[in-house]
Design a protein around this nucleic acid. Structure first.
Length: 372
DNA sequence: AATACCGGCGAGT
DNA sequence: TCATACTCGCCGGTATT
């Protein structure tokens, strides 16, 4: 019996309805009530959107992304419904502790977000999926014992299949897709369920007569390339075939952003007061991570909810709040010059092209440092 | 021709 | 009807070298 050189066993772990479950753990008495985590924008009493909700609320139709006001309308008959403002610092702390538990189960881990991670457990299982299932059960038990938290786990031969598997049963699921089950698992799914296929792509595929994953897996690659491009086209077909060579590996952060909803739509750059805290926050976050950025950009969501970006590459890497403010102001000013009469609803700052602060000093010393 | 940059878009949490 | 705050990645166009 031999283990094929490239056969892997990957776990995808997803913490169930994360923000809402964090609140349930903190306040057990709300556990059986609809729980809605809100991002209040501050425009009016209940302006803003639902970030996430627990399954009690979801079953009643309150899902991520809907307006808070609409959620309140839907739950108006449920007097016990709980609406809570998002408390990111608390959720981040819970996340960190759980991620530590995950990390203890594999050296090869990739945290995807506050509530998701991939683990490559190949070297522990050596291709034995029943042993992977034991690892998954152990992880679920340990998270439950340590944090009173449920999670879902998907097991598969690569990240894509593990991700599709974890989505197949939530919450508190454990789904294992053996290598020889991959095609039969994926084939009947509607293409929209395939990871990476959102509404727009689904719509285009539908117009091509491609409704289920099997159709996509069998589709002519050249035809896909002509519509989705030479990278995305072939990628779609591979995904549909359950093929994914992407390795499990922590990635460097590439960008960082902060955005706010303005009290009123702005028609000229007059919100320096609102922009300053964003610049300060970005500056602090960069400093905490010992990072500098080489580009600074702005994000403007206009009155008609379209997203506009402007960015500039800097002469020298920085983490300076003042620099972000200066460049941000200039970019917003030119944005308003180019778009006379356009209103901005939400405004943000984004920094990208991140580099380690220490590295940059070595490679690009300032004159003072060079002669220092 | 190759690379860098920019801005729009799409997807996912 | 009302429509958050992030992060990542691709695409095509254009500028730079």
């Amino acid at each position: 019996m031999s283990l094929s050189r490239d056969a892997r066993t990957i776990l995808a772990v997803d913490l169930d309805y994360f923000y809402a479950q964090c609140e349930e753990v903190r306040k057990p008495e709300i556990k059986d009530k609809p729980v809605v985590i809100c991002v209040f924008s501050g425009r009016t009493e209940d302006s803003g959107a639902v970030s996430t909700s627990n399954y009690v609320a979801r079953r009643l139709g309150v899902k991520s992304g809907i307006p808070i006001i609409l959620a309140k309308r839907i739950l108006s008959k449920n007097i016990d419904a709980v609406f809570l403002p998002m408390d990111r610092d608390y959720y981040d702390a819970v996340s960190e502790r759980i991620m530590e538990i995950l990390r203890s189960h594999s050296q090869k881990m990739e945290q995807m977000s506050v509530d998701e991670a991939y683990l490559d457990v190949t070297e522990y299982t050596r291709g034995d999926y029943s042993s992977a299932e034991k690892i998954a059960s152990t992880i679920k038990r340990r998270i439950l014992e340590a944090e009173h938290f449920t999670c879902s786990v998907g097991i598969g031969p690569n990240k894509l299949v593990a991700k599709m598997a974890v989505d197949a049963k939530k919450p508190d699921g454990l789904t294992m897709i053996l290598p020889d089950q991959v095609r039969s698992f994926l084939d009947p799914l509607p293409v929209g369920k395939l990871f990476g296929v959102g509404p727009k792509t689904e719509e285009k595929l539908g117009a091509m007569g491609i409704k289920i994953v099997k159709d996509l897996a069998n589709c002519d690659e050249a035809r896909l390339s002509s519509i989705f491009g030479k990278n995305l086209g072939p990628q779609l077909k591979l995904s549909a075939q359950g093929i994914d060579d992407d390795i499990v590996q922590e990635r460097e952060q590439e960008q960082l952003s902060r955005i706010v909803t303005l009290k009123q739509d702005a028609r000229a750059f007059n919100f320096e007061y609102e922009l300053a805290p964003l610049c300060r926050d970005i500056s602090e976050r960069l400093a905490a991570k010992k990072l500098l950025c080489k580009s600074v950009g702005i994000i403007a969501i206009t009155t008609d909810l379209k997203t506009k970006n402007r960015a500039r590459t800097l002469d020298a890497p920085t983490s300076s709040e003042a620099k972000f403010m200066e460049v941000g102001s200039e970019l917003f000013n030119s944005f308003f010059d180019e778009n006379e009469g356009i209103g901005v609803r939400r405004a943000g700052i984004r920094v990208s092209n991140l580099i380690k602060a220490a590295d940059s000093q070595m490679k690009n010393p300032t004159l003072a440092e060079f002669f220092g």
